[in-house]
Every structure is written in C-alpha cells, then in structure tokens.
Nucleic acid binder design. Structure first.
Length: 202
DNA sequence: ATCAAGATTACCT
DNA sequence: GGTAATCTTGATA
C-alpha cells in the first residue's frame, strides 16, 4: 500500500491544542518509510499529555535534555526509552514551549506486515493471534516499525515518518482514563476506536 | 556517586 | 493475576 502523499498532515494540524489533535488522530494512517516502501497502520488508540497541569506528562517539571523535543511546536516526533526495554513514540502538539504531546498507543497494521512480524517475532510468518499482537501497544508498535532513539525529534512534515488522512471517520470514539500512569489518573485523555481489535486494552 | 522510578511487555502460575 | 527484565534519566548528596 502506498500512502496518499498529497494528504499528509501539515504543520497547522499539529499546532492545534493537544486534546483537539488527540481526538482527531484515531482513524488516520501512521506511515514510516522503509527504503522504497512504507510501513503503514491505522491509528486506533492514543493518549494526550499536557505539561501545563498534567502531572503524568514528562514535561510537568520543566525542560530537561530528555524531554526538550516535547517543547517544540507541533509536528515533531518525541521518542523516549522506558523500562530499559521499550521505545514509545509521541506526536508533539501545540505551540512552541507548551510541552504537549500525544502518545501513539496502538495501530492496526496495514502494509509491510511481514517486516513488522520479522522485527517483533524474528520471523516473517505470523499467526492470526500474532497479527493482533503486532502493534497493539506503544512499545510493540515502535519495535514493529523500527522506531528508536535516533527518530527522536523527526519532523513529521518530512518524508520518513508522517501521518496521512484518508477520511476514515465511521467509527465510535471511546474517551476514557489513561493506562500505566500513577499521577493525574483521573484525566479522561485516552481515546480509542470502539470496535477495533487492535486496541491495547479495553 | 548513588538511587529510585518508569506513558511496557512477556512469560509464569 | 503477578513479576522479572533492563537501563536511562533526573533528583538528591
């Protein structure tokens, strides 16, 4: 599958307030170039993080070397390493110095599935059970799409990692609390496609 | 210099 | 349901 490059999301999409971006991302297609082809997958689950009053955000206590990308204007990729094992990828949103981002928690794989399987399981063949398990979590999708430290700060209006629209909007969007955090747990800032099999946790 | 915690996952019972 | 894995970062001294 070749993504429609004419529908790549531009700067003015990402510079919107973080919750506006978070609610619009589900249904859009996340793309990472691999040589002459593309890993693609539909975004099915995200979480918003807002450094101004959200204690769970990495930017809540101000700028550090680790989180500086999150203080850029919207439209850059913030990648961090966690638990000594996994990478997680976020879309920076809003204005410069706001420190806001949306964590991409799960996608529905659409192309280069064999390569994703190779990255995840060490073999290009995968069972139907493994298909569901390919990219249904923030660490898993980074592994599947080869997103790592060097991608921190990537410009999402460039040619290597970006998001395209394809007018997929016919679904229910669930709004609920976030997963895997201990602070600001009450904020209903997790959004996912109701009937998707590829959501990390219902 | 030391240390605790972490926006997770895989594997165990 | 419980927990080990594994290492970077940021805070404190």
């Amino acid at each position: 599958m070749v993504p429609d490059l004419t529908r790549k999301l531009q700067r003015n999409f990402y510079t919107q307030p973080v919750l506006d971006v978070a609610k619009q991302l589900p249904g859009k297609i996340f793309v990472k170039r691999k040589g002459d082809s593309f890993y693609t997958g539909r975004i099915v689950e995200v979480e918003a993080y807002d450094g101004s009053y959200d204690e769970a955000a990495h930017t809540f206590n101000g700028k550090t070397k680790r989180n500086e990308v999150m203080f850029k204007e919207g439209g850059y990729l913030y990648v961090y390493f966690t638990y000594g094992v996994h990478y997680c990828c976020n879309v920076v949103t809003g204005k410069k110095n706001e420190g806001n981002a949306v964590l991409i928690r799960a996608i529905e794989p659409m192309s280069l599935l064999e390569d994703m399987s190779g990255n995840r399981f060490g073999t290009n063949n995968f069972s139907s059970k493994q298909l569901i398990n390919l990219t249904n979590g923030p660490g898993k999708l980074c592994k599947a799409l080869e997103i790592e430290r060097k991608h921190n700060g990537y410009n999402l209006t460039g040619d290597d990692i970006f998001i395209v629209d394809d007018d997929y909007t016919d679904f229910g969007l669930v709004e609920t609390t976030r997963i895997g955090i201990n602070k600001s747990v009450e904020l209903p800032w997790r959004f996912y496609i109701k009937d998707s099999k590829y959501v990390s946790k219902k």
